[in-house]
Each structure stands twice: as structure tokens, then as C-alpha cells.
């Protein structure tokens, strides 16, 4: 009877562990609940970015970049607060943080009408590879681009 109880405990522990493995690539992510909430946060943030009016002139560039920066900063805080763990999650959060920093530089460049720097900073953003980091963290919705209407 004692052995049966131990076996049952072992099975329960395995089940609990399995439930906690929501991420991919061998990294812990804090559970399926984390993934679901992080994906929901990303979906909301993507919708907010998609709703931003596309700048039709340089005068509209700065507010566009600033608003995108605010959304990315908010997303990073929200996902951080969800308490995910594991290397892949940390890498994704670091990617968001770096994105926010580059967007801040881009805002400054747009403010001083330095469009050459704006273009260069766009390349830096692309090099972060945020979708790849999100996929590695098992956050499918976070890997998607906002559905901007042309």
C-alpha cells in the first residue's frame, strides 16, 4: 500500500512537471498558463500596432515610432510580470528590451530629422529577430507580425 502511494505521488509529480513545460527547445516557460497569457498580451499589442495610422509624411514619423515604443515597452512589462522562466523566455524578454531601446534611439533620430539614422536603426530592429526568439520560447502569437492593412 505504501509503495502504491509512493507510485501515485511519483505519477502526480510527473504530471505536474509535464504541465509546467509549455515552452519548446528544452526551456522552462513557467507553464501553459504563462504561454496563454503571454500570447494574449502579444495579440493585444499586435492589434494596437496594427491600428496605428501609417505615417504619410515625416511629421507623422515621430509619433508613430513613439507609440510603437510605448506598446513594446508595455508588452515587455506585461510579459515580465507573468513570471515566466527559462532561457528562451529570458532571451525573448531581452529581445523586447533591446527593441524598446532601439525604438527610443529611433524616436530621437526622428525628432532631429536624421532620417539616415532612422533607416539604420530599422536594420538594427530587424537584426534582433524577435519572431525567432518568440518561437523558441513557444509563444506562437508573439512570433506573428501585426496584420497591418495596406
Amino acid at each position: 500500500m505504501k509503495r502504491l502511494a509512493l507510485f501515485a505521488c511519483f505519477c502526480l509529480a510527473l504530471a505536474a512537471l509535464a504541465a509546467g513545460c509549455g515552452g519548446s527547445g528544452g526551456s522552462s516557460s513557467g507553464g501553459g498558463e504563462f504561454s496563454a497569457e503571454a500570447n494574449a498580451a502579444c495579440t493585444t499589442a499586435n492589434a494596437r500596432v496594427a491600428a496605428l495610422p501609417r505615417p504619410e509624411g515625416e511629421a507623422q514619423l515621430l509619433p508613430y515610432v513613439e507609440k510603437t515604443e510605448a506598446i513594446v515597452v508595455g508588452l515587455e512589462r506585461e510579459v515580465t510580470a507573468l513570471g515566466g522562466s527559462g532561457d528562451a523566455i529570458k532571451a525573448y524578454l531581452a529581445g523586447l528590451e533591446e527593441s524598446a531601446q532601439v525604438l527610443n534611439k529611433m524616436s530621437n533620430a526622428a525628432r532631429s530629422h536624421n532620417l539616415g539614422a532612422v533607416g539604420e536603426l530599422a536594420s538594427q530592429l530587424a537584426e534582433i529577430g524577435l519572431a525567432r526568439l518568440a518561437s523558441a520560447a513557444g509563444l506562437g502569437a508573439c512570433a506573428k507580425a501585426p496584420a497591418v492593412q495596406p
Partner: peptide, 21 residues
């Protein structure tokens, strides 16, 4: 360049549009 950019894709496209290239 925006293919792997997730939420950053629109701002990359916009910014590159204002850049020299």
C-alpha cells in the same frame, strides 16, 4: 528584413521607407 520581426515589422517597414535606401 521584417519577416522575423514580429511586432516590430510595421515600424521597420515605415522607418526604412524614410531612410536612404
Amino acid at each position: 528584413p521584417a519577416k522575423e520581426a514580429a511586432i516590430l515589422a510595421p515600424v521597420i517597414v515605415v522607418a526604412q521607407g524614410f531612410g536612404p535606401g
